[in-house]
């Protein structure tokens, strides 16, 4: 699943998303100056989500390497997060920088740069992370200008809620 919405491929949907986001950003030019100058509101949210997903991937990889928790489930969840990461990268504007502008936050995370990421998380802490992430998605979906991007964020949040449920049951 995840390849189409309403008969339209996800990639095509997200292509429209990006075009819509760019148009909306141009239309609102001069009124969104609380965002970094080169970053649209939608890109700002996207960058934030990308950083979260990068951290989630590192945490699950660490948990799997440590052997803590149900490995089959952790593998499936990790794969879902990687799918989210790909979808979010696809949603970035074509002319966007591959890494965030400096004023928009820290660069991509690495375990050796963040001590917390180097420690193997317990299933309960992963469950808490998923529940917290899912709880933020409705407001983030409401915060973007592009409707297709809002759908993507809403869907990611639903998957994260599912992860929290599965980790709770495991």
């Amino acid at each position: 699943m995840g390849q189409a919405a309403g008969g339209v491929s996800r990639r095509a949907l997200l292509g429209a998303t990006v075009a819509g986001a760019s148009a909306a950003a141009l239309a609102g030019c001069g009124t969104v100056d609380w965002y970094p100058s080169d970053t649209t509101p939608d890109e700002h949210v996207l960058r934030s989500l990308l950083r979260e997903k990068e951290r989630a991937v590192v945490r699950y990889e660490t948990a799997l390497a440590d052997g803590s928790g149900p490995s089959d489930l952790l593998e499936r969840v990790l794969e879902n997060h990687r799918t989210h990461l790909d979808a979010l990268l696809d949603a970035l504007p074509e002319d966007a920088e591959p890494t965030p502008p400096e004023e928009d936050g820290p660069p991509p995370v690495a375990a050796d740069e963040d001590p917390e990421l180097g420690e193997a998380p317990s299933p309960s802490s992963l469950r808490a992370m998923e529940a917290s992430a899912a709880g933020m998605r409705p407001e983030q979906a409401a915060a973007v200008t592009d409707r297709g991007l809002a759908q993507l964020i809403g869907s990611i949040g639903a998957c994260e809620a599912g992860h929290a449920h599965q980790l709770d049951e495991a």
């Binding site: 699943m1 390849q3 879902n80 799918t83 979808a87 993507l152 869907s155 998957c159 599965q166």
Partner: peptide
């Protein structure tokens, strides 16, 4: 659980 629930 799909990676992107809700999409067909």
């Amino acid at each position: 659980l799909d990676a992107l629930p809700g999409y067909e």
